[in-house]
């Protein structure tokens, strides 16, 4: 298909609105952040306009390396766990009747509307020694005495999966609804058990959706800064926590901005890498 080149101003009008939104809500704030990240910090005050790279130099310490590494690892773990749980669930849901689907989707949207604060405190109660599920496990004989399940990595991971799972399900749902349900049935008539059929047919048929979902959930999880603080120990704090800390409590805007810019660049690089690898495999 060939397109006519745009000739008049009115031809360009439909492009103007998205372009304006992009500039106002993304390019300008990000530009300001990049600029601030090079400013000089004023001890006890704010910052002065300058051009220094000191804010970026501070990354080159083992401490920041390990925080960054942990942040990326945590976001990836959340993304993988969410997709692994959400894929079979959403696949099952897509085979249910319309009424059942609506009820579930409304429930899922309700969870999505909960703020990170509420999720964090709800799970911290659930994981506590006095009121938590430890009591339930002890009553069932699975645990000798009620124990607190937090702070710890498991608690952080659980909370973040809980937060990202509805999002993951909603991302997967349209593709699974569009997928021909007879694909799995065909696999079964051809000798594959339901599980084998799911892994060998449904998963590969949805590989693009799965890759896109992994990336989106990864980015979503990367932004979480309250849950690691509420449910984790200091070693479970992510870069987002440090950014908040620097920006709000230490009033070190330039350093916070530098970290934010760095995080965005790393995420973009990772996403680009995934797309590149996916694209190369596709071409082969």
């Amino acid at each position: 298909m060939r397109r006519e080149p745009a000739r008049t101003f009115s031809d360009l009008l439909p492009l103007l609105f998205p372009a304006a939104v992009l500039v106002v809500f993304f390019v300008i704030p990000f530009g300001i952040m990049v600029a601030v990240s090079f400013f000089r910090r004023q001890q006890g005050g704010f910052y002065t306009v300058d051009f220094v790279v000191a804010n970026y130099e501070r990354f080159l310490t083992p401490f920041f390396g390990s925080v960054l590494g942990f942040s990326l690892f945590l976001a990836m773990a959340v993304a993988v766990c969410c997709v692994v749980v959400a894929l079979p669930f959403t696949s099952f849901l897509s085979g249910c009747s319309r009424r059942v689907q609506v009820v579930w989707l409304v429930g899922i949207l309700a969870i999505l509307s909960l703020s990170e604060v509420i999720i964090g405190f709800a799970w911290s109660t659930l994981f506590s020694r006095t009121a938590g599920i430890g009591n339930l496990l002890a009553a069932l004989g699975l645990m000798e005495a009620p124990k607190a399940l937090l702070p710890g990595f498991g608690a952080v991971l659980t909370g973040m999966i809980y937060q990202a799972l509805p999002f993951t399900i909603l991302l997967l749902y349209p593709s699974l609804m569009r997928l021909d349900p007879s694909l799995l049935e065909a696999a079964r008539t051809l000798g594959a058990s339901p599980l084998r059929g799911f892994v060998s047919v449904v998963v590969p048929a949805l590989r693009h959706t799965i890759a896109a979902t992994l990336i989106m959930v990864f980015v979503f999880a990367l932004g979480s800064y309250l849950l690691p603080q509420i449910l984790g120990r200091p070693q479970h704090w992510t870069l987002s926590v440090l950014i908040t800390d620097q920006a709000i409590y230490q009033s070190n805007m330039p350093f916070a901005a530098a970290m934010a810019v760095f995080l965005v660049l790393i995420s973009l690089a990772l996403v680009g890498l995934v797309l590149l690898v996916g694209g190369r495999r596709e071409a082969a």
Binding site: S182, T189, V201, R207
Partner: peptide
């Protein structure tokens, strides 16, 4: 079995 939609595996 041949399904009405054929159900060929697209990948």
């Amino acid at each position: 079995m041949v399904f009405q939609s054929l159900a060929l595996f697209p990948h």
